[in-house]
Design a binder for these strands. Structure first.
Lengths: 107, 107
DNA sequence: TCGATGTATAGCCATAAGGGTATGAATACG
DNA sequence: CGTATTCATACCCTTATGGCTATACATCGA
């Protein structure tokens, strides 16, 4: 039952983790050390959050010597956008149906 | 720091809760009793999930006698869509920048 | 080779969160 | 009225989660 949307929503639910992801989106590739500065939490915590984001497919890592560079895997957001538009779509359908119903009642 | 996106992501992170919201989107207004059938959890738990969804602004309730009718507040998804497109937008910018950089290097 | 540096992992702890049952509160009905 | 129904609240319990420190595991530099 742990589908794609599950992992995405859960990964992005935590403010600290979402802030890290947002920063990677805004500022591009960053090392763990750089991300730790200003994250408000310790380095191990940042690493753990990055692991969660990676499991969700939201980030990718690139090893370069001692450092690990993380970057946003922006395509991973597609299922989220799809889900949102799908839910909004159902509403549209019902709105259209209501509109149609009112039109029919008008005649 | 508990902003709109925070409440939205957290509210939708739980599978059971998201399933309830999805059902309200797909099938329209439903009472608590109807929602409880097929939810896989007890009625009090459903009520609690609905309360969370309501706090997040994702649903609205309408009292009619003993029953409470819940329906999806689809406009609440707008910040989610905005956030997603904004994040994707940052990536676009960087992609364009890279493309531009490569073009310049080509000359 | 040895110390310094950058990350990840391992425990550990406190709290949040989701689940249950019991029950209260309000409304419908005989 | 008294009883049944519908939902919300109260309370408890268990597990998940996010934070920390300590430490292991590379890798770089001298």
């Amino acid at each position: 039952m742990s589908n794609v949307q599950d992992r995405l929503f859960r990964a992005l639910a935590d403010p600290t983790r979402r802030a890290i992801f947002e920063r990677l989106c805004r500022e591009g590739e960053k090392t763990v050390g750089v991300l730790t500065v200003g994250a408000g939490v310790s380095q191990p915590v940042v690493s753990k959050h990055l692991a969660v984001l990676k499991t969700a497919g939201l980030v990718r890592d690139r090893h370069e010597g001692r450092q690990t560079h993380y970057s946003a895997e922006i395509h991973a957001l597609a299922p989220l956008a799809d889900w949102t538009t799908e839910m909004a779509g159902f509403w549209e359908d019902r709105f259209d149906a209501l509109e149609d119903l009112l039109k029919r009642m008008d005649q």
